[in-house]
Design a protein around this nucleic acid. Structure first.
Length: 830
RNA sequence: GCGAGAGUGGCGGAACUGGUAGACGCACUGGACUUAGGAUCCAGCCCACUUUGGUGGAUGGGGGUUCGACUCCCCCCUCUCGCACCA
């Protein structure tokens, strides 16, 4: 470079130019093309909160690299973008600004779309969708009614978090330390009717199919498996002493049933009162039930409740031993899981053990430890491992596994039990007493009961002439023009459901709608959906590992069973990107450590912003923000720009093509070029480790810039320089498309880079002629040896033993063993 | 408590199936060019000793397998995330 003034490229002009071209040309429009293999890459769509944040930048940069790379590899790529547009923030903003949630939402969408376009992401904008549009949710409502017809939707009474002063149900996330997040009043438990999706019908399949999701991180699959929480065991009926009632328990350890010395039931168990009545324990039991109920509600996540219980006064009979055992109400028994009643086996369950110690209840050993027999009198903790049955009548001497089966079979035969599988997974409650959500398409008729809205009457649209008023209540139950309707069965006056759906419903199927966003007369256009689904690569934050991903899997199976699509799973491969961290914490407004992408784009441009977010860490790990790191990324792009400019004349007409017979520096550079292509291609294909891919390109740029342009021409064949520069541009294109597209025209290419093909490396060119052999004596590095590639083992060994460093460190001793690793090292053991 | 993952220079991070630990970048130091440099270029940059040629040590700690361990095995420590009384 002869000028003293350093060129900095005009990223603003360049980026604007290419972005406009991409939009007007619809460069990234995707259509079904049977001649090419499809590739569907999708990033989790954003909530239109107002502006994009660094997490979006990272997420969408990763996705865009994959999309552009796959296009270069010849795939027919679908890369859509849309908006998860229903939700509470829009209601709050509407109240604050005295407007309609739709106004705020659509304004945000417009702004954020502009931001995404300013980042140069290669979306097919013709497929853009917003879930708050009736064009979207009408199909969701139709699916809802189809699910209802199929028995996958039901209504039931449940306990919800209720804020009296706000007159609304709160989501669990909106309850902070048992108080309302908005008004800080204590939250109450209230029984309300709500609609539920029967996700539990799919528990078994959702669990089993985890094994088929080989492209998902093990961590996510583990979380899903745990969430589904399958337990195999048995249900056994215990007769209540002196009554016709029986208490059914669930256990995973039927082999320990002879050791049940008491029973624990949930304080909310329907039989608690009955058991206590007439025993003199009523007052005590009532007091305990009230106290634990209040305590439970107030319990914070992290504090552990002390195990506590009270004797109900009642007894039940162990059907296997015939003995009468006391029934306790205990605060650690959950009504929601199993049957709300547990047989207590202190010898083989730690909780029961502690409980028995506290209340002086008998401990009976029924499963003994093989090889080291136990004594219940001296046991310090429960023995929970499998073992051999003792004190168990006819089941004695059986191994635990065998006994589980035998006990269950016996109970089934005698009619007081059966094998049973339970799941931790609960049905999905989707009713929200909110305004800004998709209306639940159901109608209540006095005469005919609950009726789904017929397909011809869909969509049930949200009114545009009213909005939340700040009272905290949804206006819908008071809005006659909305709720007043007629029964589709009898035609009489009827009332519409005024609850809306959980916003997770919209995000459970949007990936399918992207395949046919224009399908105006049906939920999904099956042939197009089947063409594109499953998503080949899904990318998003780990925070959605359970809810969104589980719901999406569930919905896909439901849509399959309703005949809308064929895929059993929505996402073949999942990449969970790490968080963007600054000063050791996740970027957040409350911590004041946010970096606004806009300032970066203005100062450095989209390419630098993209490059930094890709280079600073591998995608799956957290990314520590560094202002200096951004400078480094910017510096690198400027170097690339100057490098290409300095060699621009190389591309004037002279044909490319590296001669076969080069050697010296030209050969070395040629080799480096092909080694770089090999390395970058490998990184793109394996786990998307863009950070190492970028570092490899940086090395190549360093090699190409190691001499001034003039010197380089003297040392290296122009064709090799040209090959190197083109390789740099092609390899960088998916990550920093604007600057590369611009430089590609500088290098005389008429055709746009957007249709360019990923370079292939030539193994012959990448091969090393000379190899450095590491010389070790007793495993310690003692020297290096340059040999021609392909030198025989014996020859290398001979050279190594003759090496002066090796000889020196052998100190005259003879080699006991010589290990030769071909093309790598020689280790002499003395 | 259970489950998953991770501990490597001042920092972010490299290191393929065990084979030169620290690629690449940042920061830092020195120099060049300069009215100036926060631009650019060149050089240095794990630690300790050193006769400046090297030598020794080092991937959370301890042990083991191996000719050879960041990598494999065992024990321990720390951190992050998830589920947390699931019977």
């Amino acid at each position: 470079m002869t000028t003293t003034e350093t060129i900095r490229y005009d990223f603003a002009a360049i980026e604007a130019k290419w972005q406009e071209k991409w939009l007007t040309d619809k460069t990234f429009k995707a259509g079904e093309d049977p001649s090419r293999q499809k590739y569907y890459v999708l990033e989790m769509f954003p909530y239109p909160s107002g502006r994009i944040h660094m997490g979006h930048v990272r997420n969408y940069s990763i996705g865009d690299v994959i999309a552009r790379y796959k296009r270069m590899r010849g795939y027919n790529v679908l890369h859509p973008m849309g908006w998860d547009a229903f939700g509470l923030p829009a209601e709050n903003a509407a109240i604050k600004h005295n407007t309609h949630p739709a106004t705020w939402t659509y304004e945000n969408i417009d702004y954020m779309r502009g931001q995404l376009q300013r980042m140069g992401f290669s979306y097919d904008w013709d497929r853009e969708l917003a879930t708050c549009s009736p064009d979207y949710y009408r199909w969701e409502q139709l699916v809802f009614t189809r699910m209802y017809e199929k028995g996958l939707v039901y209504r039931k009474l449940t306990t919800v978090n209720w804020c009296e002063s706000c007159q609304t149900v709160l989501a669990n996330e909106q309850v902070i330390d048992a108080c309302c997040w908005r008004c800080d009043n204590a939250v109450q438990a209230k029984d309300m009717h709500g609609w539920f999706f029967k996700i539990t019908d799919y528990a078994e399949e959702l669990l089993a199919d985890c094994d088929r999701l080989t492209g998902w991180p093990e961590k996510v699959l583990t979380m899903q498996r745990n969430w589904i929480g399958k337990s195999v065991g048995a249900e056994i009926d215990f007769q209540v002493a002196g009554s016709d009632e029986k208490i059914t328990i669930f256990t995973t350890r039927p082999d320990t049933i002879f050791g049940a010395t008491f029973m624990s039931i949930a304080p909310e168990h329907p039989l608690v009162e009955k058991l206590a009545s007439g025993t003199g324990h009523e007052a005590e039991v009532f007091e305990f039930v009230q106290r634990t109920r209040n305590l439970k509600k107030r319990k914070k996540q992290d504090e552990e409740l002390e195990k506590e219980g009270v004797f109900t006064g009642g007894y039940c009979v162990n059907p296997f031993t015939g003995s009468k055992i006391p029934v306790y109400a205990a605060n650690f028994v959950l009504m929601e899981y199993g049957t709300g009643a547990v047989m207590a086996v202190p010898a083989h369950d730690q909780r029961d053990f502690e409980f028995a110690k506290k209340y002086h209840l008998p401990i009976e050993l029924v499963v003994d430890r093989p090889g080291a027999p136990l004594d219940p009198a001296t046991m310090q903790e429960a023995y929970v491992e499998p073992g051999v049955l003792v004190n168990s009548g006819r089941f004695d001497a059986m191994a635990s596994e065998e006994a589980k089966k035998a006990v269950t079979e016996h109970a089934a035969r005698e009619g007081f039990g059966q094998s049973r599988t339970t799941f931790r997974l609960r049905d999905w409650g989707i009713s929200r007493q909110r305004f800004w959500g998709a209306p639940i398409p159901m109608i209540y008729c006095q005469k005919c009961g609950v009726q789904p809205v017929p397909e011809k009457d869909l969509p049930v649209t949200l009114p545009t002439d009213c909005a939340p008023d700040g009272s905290g209540k949804s206006p819908l139950p008071q809005l006659e023009s909305f709720y007043k309707t007629t029964c589709p069965a009898c035609g009489e006056e009827a009332r519409r459901e005024t609850d809306t759906m959980d916003t997770f419903v919209e995000s459970s199927w949007y990936f399918a709608r992207y395949a046919c966003p224009d399908a105006g007369d049906q939920v999904l256009d099956r042939s197009r959906v089947d063409h594109w689904l499953p998503v080949d690569q899904y990318i998003g934050g780990i925070e959605h590992a359970i809810l969104h991903l589980l719901y999406a899997r569930f919905f896909t199976k439901v849509l399959r069973d309703l005949g809308y699509l064929t895929a059993a799973e929505p996402f073949a491969n999942l990449l969970t990107q790490g968080m963007v961290i600054k000063d050791g914490a996740k970027m957040s407004k409350s911590k004041g450590n946010v970096v606004d992408p806009n300032t970066l784009i203005e100062r450095y441009g989209a390419d630098t912003t993209r490059l930094f977010s890709l280079f600073a860490a591998p995608p799956e790990k957290d990314l520590e923000w560094s202002d200096q790191g951004v400078e480094g990324a910017s510096r690198f792009l400027n170097r690339v720009f100057r490098l290409v400019q300095a060699h621009a004349d190389l591309f004037d007409g002279s044909p490319a093509g590296v001669p076969d017979s080069i050697d010296g520096p030209g050969r070395a550079l040629h080799r480096k070029i092909h080694q770089t292509i090999r390395k970058v291609s490998f990184d793109m294909e394996n786990d998307f480790h863009f950070n190492t891919a970028i570092s490899a390109v940086m090395e190549l740029v360093n090699a190409l810039s190691s001499a001034t342009a003039e010197e380089a021409r003297e040392q290296v064949e122009p064709a090799v320089l040209r090959e190197g520069i083109e390789a740099v541009l092609l390899l960088l294109y998916p990550m920093v498309p604007h600057i590369v597209a611009e430089l590609w025209t500088v290098t005389g290419h008429r055709q746009s880079l957007d249709g360019a093909v990923w370079p292939e490396f030539d193994p012959e060119a990448a091969r090393e002629d000379e190899i450095t052999i590491v010389l070790q004596v007793n495993g310690k590095l003692r020297g290096r040896l340059q040999v021609a590639a392909g030198t025989g083992e014996e020859e290398v060994k001979k050279l190594a033993l003759a090496d002066e460093n090796v000889v020196r460190f052998m100190e005259g001793k003879t080699a006991r063993k010589v290990i030769v690793v071909p093309n790598k090292l020689v280790n002499v053991v003395v």
